[in-house]
Amino acid sequence: MSAPQFTVTRNPAPASPQRRAEVLANPGFGRYFTDHMVTVGWTEGSGWQDPQVVPYGPLSLDPATMLLHYGQEIFEGLKAYRQADGSIATFRPDANAARFAGSARRMAMAELPEDLFLASLSELLAVDSEWVPAAGGEDSLYLRPFMIATEVGLGVRPSAEYLYSVIASPAGPYFADGVAPMDVWLETEYTRAAMGGTGTAKCGGNYAASLLPQSVGAQHGCAQVAYLDAEERTWIDEMGANNLFFVFRDAAGAVELATPDLRGSVLAGITRDSLLTVARDLGITVTERRISGQEWLGGAASGVLTEVFGCGTAAVITPIGTVKHTGGEVTIGDGRPGPVTLQLREALTAMQRGSAPDPHGWMHTMVPAPATV
């Protein structure tokens, strides 16, 4: 299928080169946005139509827009990296496209074709290419594709109209002063998602439900919350914004890298899936299995569990130093990032920034390198 044709309307008042340089020098995460965005509409009977790159700006919604009452909304997150030759590439955008379509199915929304998803990224990056940070580091341009229900009217049913959009935000390195561990709260009262629910979809409601337990974790000095399953309150699911990995070492020093299996309430993380492959490439024994909260706490206390880390698009890998719970707290290993954690993080980030081989073809060039004279 040929790529859809986008119309481009340039922002009449883009950020000046000086302002853009100021932002890129200290972008943080999700604080600033580029000059343009993508919009594509869908209506029942007509399908997807009018793909555009337009100036970044507010959306106008009627008070009776179905999004505001019934919560049909999904999103994705991925990063664009400047490569050494000046081209711009993204990491596994086809996987994001597939997950976006899966989220749409679960939320009874229109499914966006993969070619349109990929074209929307390349079109926005071509127009806002100067917002992509320089090559060599972990700085990137974060891309946020999302879709909302836009039909006006009340009544509990799927919307007959949707708006797909992509916005972009410069992102600095997650760990500006070196990879640092975080403390995590093991939640036993609230759950993230249940079997048959929306846990496998990347929808806003899942994140809204995590905000209260997140505030509970913050009261205990924790940056993130890890959840148990909703049925037995026994098995580790994931964190509010990350999948989880556990490194076990037996008495002979053999290493097992374990992660909770995708049991119907866990989001299928693209970073998670990538790390499973990278770990196998490095000769690390990998398992996807049930891991109980007690195995986490007991393994850390006995020393069998030596490392734990979360993984996701924003930080790639975040080591966990301490897990706190209603009965106390336990430190993982010596509380510092472990060797397996750091090895995996370096392997994946080096591939993303173009300084290591890409044997699986995960990096997709969205904007080619400038022509040389």
Rank of each mutant, 00 (worst) to 15 (best):
L125G: 09
A160E: 08
T9I: 15
Y56G: 05
A135Y: 12
P93Y: 06
D35L: 12
T150V: 03
A252H: 11
R233S: 11
A223Y: 13
I284S: 07
I148L: 14
L141T: 07
L68S: 15
G327S: 15
M366Y: 08
T9K: 13
H360Y: 10
N96K: 08
L59K: 12
V23K: 02
A251H: 11
S87D: 09
T277V: 15
H220I: 00
L344E: 06
T259I: 11
L163Q: 13
N96W: 01
G361H: 05
C222A: 12
L154K: 07
R106S: 13
E44M: 06
P260R: 14
I317Y: 01
G335S: 05
Y162S: 03
S60G: 04
G45N: 06
I284T: 06
E231F: 12
A13T: 15
F100D: 07
M239V: 11
A369S: 11
I148F: 05
A64F: 07
T90S: 15
V255K: 12
P181G: 07
R336P: 09
P158G: 09
M366W: 04
F146C: 04
L143P: 08
Q294C: 10
G204E: 04
L282V: 01
T43R: 14
E295S: 12
A104F: 04
R272V: 10
T285G: 00
R272D: 06
